[in-house]
Design a protein around this nucleic acid. Structure first.
Length: 260
DNA sequence: TTAAATTCCTGTAAGC
DNA sequence: TGCTTACAGGAATTTA
């Protein structure tokens, strides 16, 4: 599922290919994909010149010269492709002669939604060890739920939160306030690192809801995954412990040996 | 204020 | 083989 590195990879491909070009036409898919058609988005995009593709957390933003921005969220099964058919096309725009399509089988994605309030991204300057420490020290919620809360930190989903906690040697179910200052500092560093490695690798293409970039290319982050979706820990080879729907209503995994 | 539960939706996999 | 059921996921919304 697309998290920050996957969305960033999509953004880079689109920016490289289409910045400065005109959106010649727009079409929406089945009405069932929308509670209400994204009329404002259609109006902004149609005939507009793309000045930039931006990203905030897991949100992709298309900026149209002199008109404003249109926000996309890929949800968990959302994909953007250049050309490419599927029964799940919910939005498409023609840029030059190419059709850029938004597919979304599970319909958790959004087109033309408002950009919500988001916390800093782990690579932002304001995401300091102090910032994370102040956030965790008074909270009783599981640390994994806290670092996945987009209002607090933007960009981490289940895969990267799981990996950051593993790299920091912290169990996901621990209360935020149970972490020591040293653990919190370590986690601040690993949150940033896993995302940077993810971006560098072009995202993670795992078996479930496999992510591909707009040109159909897989990412390479799965090579670096140590616990998420694995049977054995990539560090010590011991059996990974998985729990379902336990933390923040989501499945969790950790290595009982590396994460004390 | 915070935390937990519920909702949305469908492809996939497991079980009978 | 064909059917039913449970479950995964992000974020908005509701309830406690």
């Amino acid at each position: 599922m697309p998290e920050l590195p996957e969305v960033e990879t999509v953004r880079r491909v689109l920016a490289e290919r289409y910045t400065g070009m005109t959106v010649t036409a727009v079409a929406v898919g089945k009405p069932t994909f929308y509670r209400a058609p994204p009329l404002a988005a259609i109006k902004i995009l149609t005939g507009g010149v793309i000045s930039a593709f931006k990203r905030r957390g897991k949100y992709l933003i298309v900026e149209i010269e002199g008109r404003g921005e249109v926000v996309f969220h890929l949800g968990m099964s959302g994909r953007i492709t250049v050309g490419g058919e599927s029964p799940h096309v919910r939005f498409q725009m023609w840029i030059g002669t190419e059709a850029v399509r938004f597919h979304d089988s599970r319909r958790f994605g959004r087109v033309g939604c408002p950009l919500p309030k988001l916390g800093p991204e782990p690579m932002d300057p304001e995401f300091t060890p102090d910032y994370l420490w102040k956030l965790l020290r008074k909270r009783s919620a599981p640390v994994k739920a806290l670092i996945m809360d987009q209002k607090l930190i933007a960009g981490l989903g289940n895969i990267y939160a799981t990996e950051a906690l593993h790299a920091a040697g912290i169990r996901p179910g621990r209360a935020g306030k149970s972490l020591t200052r040293a653990e919190s500092d370590r986690l601040a560093r690993t949150c940033r690192e896993v995302l940077l490695v993810g971006v560098e690798a072009g995202g993670a293409t795992l078996e479930d809801a496999a992510y591909l970039d707009p040109l159909g290319r897989p990412g390479r982050m799965q090579m670096n995954v140590m616990v998420y979706g694995r049977e054995d820990c990539g560090t010590c080879r011991r059996k990974v412990v998985g729990t379902r729907k336990s933390i923040g209503g989501r499945a969790s995994a950790f290595c009982p040996s590396c994460q004390r």
